[in-house]
Structure formats: C-alpha cells, structure tokens
Simulated scan of single mutants.
Amino acid sequence: MRKFILLIACIFGVTAFSQIKVLKNETLVEIGKENSVGLYKKDNRFTFNYQDVNTSNLNTFRSFSFLDVNGDVSELYKLVTDGFIDEPTGNVMLELPNDIIELHYEKNYGQPTVQFIQFINKNRKYVGKSQFLNKKQIDKIFGIGTTKAALYKKFVPKANTVTTYQNTQNQVAETPAVTKPADSKKKSRK
C-alpha cells in the first residue's frame, strides 16, 4: 500500500510542477528572403533578420524591427533602390526606435550593392553588418514581383486623376484632372 501511495504522489507531483508550458504560436509572415537576409511581418511590425558578417561566429543572427506607420516599408524600399541609381556620397543613416541603421553603398565587380549596418541599441560600440546585396536581391527580400508585396504597399492615386467614383453599373471610373490654359481671356467684339 505504501508503494502505491508513493507512486500516485510521484505521478501527481510531476504533472503539477512541470516546467514546460505550451505557448501560442505567433504567426510571422515571410515577405521575402535572400540567402541570410529576410523581411518578416507580424501585424503592423516589420522585422529584418540577417546573418551578422561582422562577427567571427557565422551563426550570429541579428534583427531590427519597426512599425509601418505611414508606408515606412515602401519608403525604405524606395530609399534603398534610389541609392542604386544615384549612389550617395556617404552612408545614409536611419533612426529606428531602438537602433540606428546605416545604408552603406559600394560597387562590387562594377555592380552597385548595399549593406545594412546596425548600431544595436543606438550604441556605436555594438555593430552588426549584413552581407552586400544587389538590386535583384533587394527586390526578392521586399517581395517585389510577388503577391507578398501587397502586404505593405499602400494605394497611391494616379497623378492625372482627381477623384474616383463608382457608377451605377458598379464599375470604377476616374475623372481626369482639369487644367486651365494660362491666359484664357476672350476679346469682345463691338
């Protein structure tokens, strides 16, 4: 009888004081990934994850995150790709809530590339660097050419339209912008 009670006590004791707890699975949506650099989304927070080439340990992965408040992801993509067309004279510095990011442009084998340099917790002492990426790799990371780019792109109205309305046949029609000639005075005849 003692052994039976001891066995029951051990079984209930193990289940009552277990250290493993099942957590909810957070859903991260992968926007795009190229080699060791990826862009992920959860709700309205975007995270860049990259392998740090600045450390001797090649298994070091770092990340930086920010909220997409006013189309910030689209603006970041535009900023990065504009640097391929017109290479800036120095590094482009971006301040995030927790980190400072520098975009370092350099030509490798005659091809323009960019490297993300992260100052962790806005401290110049702790630096992480991504690999150099070309335009094609940046497009893949941002999901350009796939349906995943729609997860962050905002609708931008065309420049030549004023308003969009829905007519009675449920088709969208656009009213073109009206321009006046500079000098439209008519001469009166007497």
Rank of each mutant, 00 (worst) to 15 (best):
30 E>L: 15
55 T>E: 12
136 K>Y: 06
173 A>Q: 14
187 K>Y: 03
81 T>V: 14
36 S>K: 05
176 P>E: 14
32 G>V: 01
145 G>L: 14
76 L>F: 10
31 I>D: 01
165 Y>T: 15
181 P>M: 10
35 N>T: 09
34 E>C: 05
170 N>A: 14
77 Y>M: 03
36 S>E: 13
151 L>V: 01
46 F>E: 01
190 K>V: 06
151 L>K: 09
102 E>D: 12
141 I>T: 03
108 N>T: 04
29 V>K: 07
63 S>H: 10
70 N>K: 15
34 E>T: 03
108 N>I: 10
44 N>V: 11
9 A>C: 13
153 K>N: 12
87 E>T: 14
28 L>C: 00
150 A>R: 11
95 E>S: 13
37 V>W: 01
75 E>H: 09
155 F>Y: 15
152 Y>T: 03
30 E>Q: 11
56 S>H: 07
10 C>Q: 06
9 A>V: 15
132 F>D: 02
36 S>N: 14
105 Y>C: 02
50 Y>K: 00
13 G>R: 02
165 Y>S: 15
113 T>I: 02
137 Q>H: 04
71 G>C: 08
172 V>M: 12
40 Y>V: 05
64 F>I: 04
49 N>R: 13
74 S>E: 14
77 Y>R: 06
120 I>S: 04
71 G>E: 05
68 D>E: 04
97 P>A: 04
164 T>D: 05
109 Y>T: 06
104 H>Q: 12
156 V>C: 02
71 G>T: 09
147 T>E: 15
40 Y>Q: 02
81 T>M: 13
95 E>N: 10
178 V>K: 09
